[in-house]
Design a protein around this nucleic acid. Structure first.
Lengths: 111, 111
DNA sequence: TTTCTTTATCGTATATTTACGATAAGCGAT
DNA sequence: ATCGCTTATCGTAAATATACGATAAAGAAA
């Protein structure tokens, strides 16, 4: 945002928007899908699967972590990323509620 | 994206990401909510509800329209925007599938 | 200790987003 | 035809996002 106008919107609007922002890039969608496939958390292989430079992937991981969609620990030469199920669930709930809310009125045919 | 790397990701990853992008701003969330409240489509009042300049709101409306989440017609001094229910439904379905997919494995406790 | 491997961070370039004011475009009313 | 109202678009400034290579950091392995 050019100027910070976040304060002008309701907190749930900001929360929903910022969750949405987290998955607003195909690389981050792909990362979440990759993490979801694995039963283990040792996820050093993410970089290899992705068609992006290591530093870029690392940046995307940071964004997902900041958004709260993944958890991660780094122990030296090995990192450990996995899905943050609680927050994913919260996000899914927010989205569900959002869609329910805006579509609760039957589609009117004007337009 | 600095360089266009969209081709490097699967189409559904891009589609989900671009839908998410559309609601990745509180103003656009608010616009969709406002449109959802109304039974009528005559939506000139959107600008008045929003804490943003008219030109900025118009820009957000365009983005929502490009993303396919709203429909809009302009007839002279009056515009007519409303929700695009079919696409909203598609988006909700994509998201639902996405969350189901990544969380189908039970949360493992490593991390 | 030195080397290797993995990952984060820094520096940087470019593209995109966000925002606003000013202007144009288009219809209705006078 | 002119004026007024509404909305889109243009021009522009500033912030963010995206990407990469280079470098740092830190444990594992030798």
């Amino acid at each position: 945002m050019a100027l910070n106008k976040k304060a002008k919107f309701a907190t749930d609007q900001n929360r929903l928007a910022s969750y949405a922002r987290a998955i607003a890039h195909p690389a981050r969608v792909a990362i979440l899908q990759t993490l979801g496939e694995k039963t283990s958390c040792i996820c050093g292989e993410i970089v290899e699967v992705m068609p992006l430079a290591q530093s870029t992937v690392s940046q995307h991981l940071k964004e997902l972590k900041d958004a709260g969609l993944i958890k991660g620990e780094i122990e030296g030469p090995r990192s450990c990323y996995c899905l943050h199920y609680e927050n994913l669930k919260e996000m899914a709930g927010l989205l569900q509620g959002f869609f329910d809310e805006i579509t609760e009125t039957a589609p009117h045919d004007a337009c």
